[in-house]
Design a protein around this nucleic acid. Structure first.
Lengths: 214, 214
DNA sequence: CATCTTTTTGCGTACCACGCATCTTTGCGT
DNA sequence: ACGCAAAGATGCGTGGTACGCAAAAAGATG
């Protein structure tokens, strides 16, 4: 018969999501372990228990697979913003939405070693890889578009005519990015929550130039 | 003999710069004309009058070559900021530095057709290409790092301990990016100068939430 | 001009992205 | 419960990319 389009039943959808997650996870895992160019697509597929050809049914590049979790997380910020009470001031809501993405989810338990130094070093090397930075940034941009839509909705502004929602989304994204960078680069960093809160506050204050009169 | 390191004499340096420019230009040109994946590295090399292997001596990917001009331009923003008078308020100086990058330089005359519709369409398609967005964003990030350094210098803040300079750089980058996007997406856009000025002003004002009381 | 340094070039290798045809799994109507 | 249709997985083949390596060309130097 003629089915209604777009519908997809439970099992299919779940399996697909599982495969996607397995591939993304395997990609990150292997890359952090061995380094970006010591991992072949074939390895990732094998680790996820799937054929090499299938990999490209889910991701159009190795880099995209590795950045997929970053994308998923970032997209949740927009969703989180929509969940915030409508009366809440915008920047408070944004801060809260951003912070939610940094609470360890249930999948962290599957981590090989939550604080193992070798793992941390691998992740750092991964983030430093030029080939991945582009993909990460692209994911951030995608998420920012979603966020801008949510902001437009919340503030009653118009995406098509006002720069405002995009500016807010970009600024919020920048706050999170800078806070994370600061967190990773600093030898003895403040807790990430504080950094993000602080960054957002500075932006909401208009980033006033510190007076050099002193 | 043992020469002073890093030195490179005139002709060498100039030829290298010329080749790089030729490759970057050819890459953009061909891509806007035929579309991203109808251009092979071989074609770009040929158009630049150089061997295919040489291409990868200058750029590590096709995308990087295409984004190279964007990178060069963005980097000039940081340089421009350093040229601004020290007494000028930060956000004024940033606005001016950003605007300088949008004045048509002397190389525009070599354009095939400054306002040819087909060219504009090609450029649009090029900017929409996912494979290029990542590289563009990476270039922007590189430039923002430079800009942050310049801001730190100008404001007397410390890149290593303060988030401030990076936040300013990121916010300024966001302002320009949003303004450009708005300019490109809008059917009847305001002049780009006005858009950038306006975007920076909004950010410097802390992006206050428009009151929905009305 | 002799020599050293830097770039270019050609070749070979490993890998990646994806179109296409085929086989398997899953969903759904009867 | 059965069987058809849609969606997904897989294998294979193709075209293309990135880069190491070593030889040749071009530029610099005294």
């Amino acid at each position: 018969m003629f089915c209604y389009g777009g519908g997809m039943t439970g099992l299919r959808q779940r399996k697909k999501a599982e495969t996607r997650a397995a591939l993304g996870w395997a990609a990150i895992h292997l890359t952090a372990e061995r380094g970006y160019d010591n991992v072949r697509v074939e390895d990732i597929a094998e680790a996820a228990g799937v054929s090499p050809r299938t990999f490209n049914n889910y991701f159009s590049s190795k880099a995209e697979a590795i950045a997929s979790r970053h994308l998923d997380r970032s997209l949740r910020t927009a969703a989180a913003l929509r969940e915030r009470p409508a009366g809440e001031p915008l920047w408070e809501a944004l801060t809260a939405a951003a912070l939610e993405q940094f609470r360890p989810g249930p999948e962290v338990e599957a981590m090989p070693s939550p604080a193992h130094p070798q793992w941390a070093a691998g992740v750092r090397a991964m983030l430093a890889e030029p080939a991945l930075q582009g993909e990460r940034l692209r994911a951030a941009a995608t998420a920012e578009a979603e966020l801008a839509a949510a902001v437009a909705e919340r503030t009653g502004t118009d995406l098509a005519t006002d720069m405002y929602p995009r500016l807010v989304a970009a600024a919020a994204g920048a706050a999170v990015a800078v806070a994370m960078q600061h967190y990773l680069d600093s030898a003895d960093p403040a807790p990430i929550d504080r950094l993000i809160t602080d960054a957002v506050r500075q932006i909401a204050a208009g980033l006033p130039e510190p007076s050099r009169l002193r």
